[in-house]
Simulated assay, not measured.
Amino acid sequence: MRIVIQRVTRGRVNVVDEQGRPDTGFAPQQIDQGLLLLVAVSDQDGPDQVAYAARKIVNMRIFEDEQGKMNRSVLDCRGQILSISQFTLYGDIRRGNRPSFIGAGKPDHAKAVWEDFNQALSEYGIKVSTGSFGTHMRLDFINDGPVTILLDTDELM
């Protein structure tokens, strides 16, 4: 899994149709202070990667304490999570100018792993809002810091 983790003061996602209009079948999802996660899944990802990534993310100390040091987790500050599926994190541009997405998981597998990941996060008692898998979305968020971290389970497992 490749996950871009951004500390945010707010985040919102809307699903849009081909003309860029809001999709009325999807209620916009919104969070206040917390983490915006852009999540990509490979075909090699499974329960071990899900458990590892969820545990790392909820315990990552990237929120400031009373002394202004990054010493608190999303759990500590009672933050929220907005999780967005984003296969393009597996885009490879080493050859040519058009990205190859061969490293991204097949849609059925990727969706199941992403949903398992979101469930694992919520089991820590965190409110988890999500985008809609495989759709065109528009994100609106305020990156706080800015603080942006990359977690790649391919390099750790």
Score class of each variant (00 low, 15 high):
Gln67Asp: 04
Thr88Gly: 12
Gln80Lys: 14
Arg94Pro: 01
Glu66Ile: 11
Gln86Asn: 15
Gln49Met: 11
Arg78His: 15
Val58Leu: 04
Gln49Trp: 05
Tyr52Asn: 04
Gln80Gly: 03
Asp43Asn: 15
Ser73Gln: 05
Arg72Ala: 05
Ala53Leu: 10
Asp76Gln: 06
Tyr52Cys: 05
Gln80Ala: 05
Ser73Met: 04
Ser73Lys: 06
Arg72Val: 01
Asn71Gly: 00
Asp65Glu: 03
Asn71Asp: 02
Ile81Cys: 08
Ile93Lys: 14
Ile93Ser: 13
Gln49His: 08
Gly91Glu: 15
Asp76Trp: 08
Asp43His: 11
Arg78Ser: 15
Lys56Ala: 04
Asp76Pro: 00
Gly46Gln: 06
Met70Val: 09
Ala51Asn: 12
Ile81Asp: 02
Ile84Trp: 04
Arg55Ser: 14
Ile81Tyr: 09
Tyr90Pro: 02
Ser83Met: 08
Val41Ser: 03
Val50Gly: 03
Arg95Ser: 15
Val58His: 00
Gln44Tyr: 09
Ile84Thr: 09
Asp92Met: 07
Lys69Phe: 02
Leu82Thr: 04
Ile57Cys: 04
Arg61Phe: 02
Ile81Thr: 01
Asp48Ala: 14
Ala53Met: 07
Pro47Gln: 14
Gly91Met: 10
Asn71Ile: 09
Arg94Leu: 13
Ser85Tyr: 13
Arg61Thr: 00
Ala53Val: 05
Arg72Ser: 01
Arg95Ile: 12
Ile57Trp: 04
Arg95Cys: 13
